[in-house]
């Protein structure tokens, strides 16, 4: 492994870590809404959450470009108020990964929230807990395995993210060139085969590790009945 390759691995880990950190609370809130509330527009929200799962990633990247690019509504606002630029930046790669990982995280967490017996929440309420307090003391702790599983799954998905990233954040060495992008670049470069092999093996090890950990957490939490995938 060359130091440049190590830098790629570290960048990938950083991008995935930040992506999971950012999307975790959002995914949990969405999972809770979809698991526990009935409201008009629920089907639409459910579909929107799942959209990145079925859309061609390049389309997701293009949509991100429209919204978060310098000329986009959110992108322009972020730049003018905070001087933040996401495009062509590693934070943009993290955003793309977060959006792509979101549906998988929501699915895992939703399962674990649905597995929490609602009658326990009722019991907490009669004992004097407000609905917020009942959430904090019953639903949240009992769904922790699902949160952990969702986070690991999201992490694995983020490590593998390619299409949306290259469309939105581009393929810039040292900035947005994560493992999959580096492998793609290596394949395009004459004599890059050895580097591709090494990076691919690392990719496989990291993704497999995260996936196995996630499945194990879910099985442990639900007695081997449910699967995330």
């Amino acid at each position: 492994m060359t130091s440049a390759e190590w830098a790629i691995v570290m960048l990938s880990l950083r991008v995935s870590f930040v992506a999971v950190l950012v999307s975790l609370p959002i995914a949990y809130a969405l999972a809770w809404l979809l698991a526990r509330r009935r409201f008009p527009g629920m089907i639409v929200l459910d579909a929107l959450v799942h959209l990145p799962l079925v859309l061609p990633p390049v389309v997701t990247g293009w949509l991100l470009l429209i919204a978060f690019g310098r000329g986009g509504e959110i992108g322009a606002w972020l730049y003018e108020n905070f001087g933040i630029t996401l495009v062509f930046n590693w934070t943009g790669a993290a955003l793309a990964a977060a959006v792509m990982a979101l549906p998988l995280m929501v699915r895992a967490m939703r399962l674990s929230i649905e597995a929490v017996d609602r009658r326990l929440v009722g019991a907490a309420r009669t004992l004097g807990a407000s609905s917020w307090k009942a959430f904090l003391t019953v639903t949240l702790p009992l769904s922790i395995p699902g949160i952990a599983a969702g986070a690991m799954l999201g992490f694995a998905r983020s490590l593998g993210e390619f299409g949306a990233t290259i469309t939105f954040a581009a393929n810039i060495a040292g900035e947005t060139r994560t493992l999959p992008l580096a492998i793609y670049t290596g394949l395009q470069t004459p004599g890059g085969e050895d580097a591709v092999t090494r990076l691919a093996i690392i990719s496989i090890i990291l993704s497999l590790g995260a996936l196995v950990l996630s499945e194990w957490l879910v099985r442990r939490a639900q007695g081997g009945r449910a699967h995330v995938l």
Binding site: L120, A123, R125, T126, S131, V138, L142
Partner: peptide, 30 residues
């Protein structure tokens, strides 16, 4: 009145003990 302000001592038929808390911690909760 919301349930937490009714101050009912409700012993459910299905008990509904909190599975992530030991018996003592279930009592502490109340």
């Amino acid at each position: 009145i919301p349930p937490e302000k009714r101050h009912a001592g409700y012993a459910f038929q299905d008990a509904r003990l909190f599975p992530h808390r030991r018996v003592a911690a279930n009592l502490d909760y109340a």
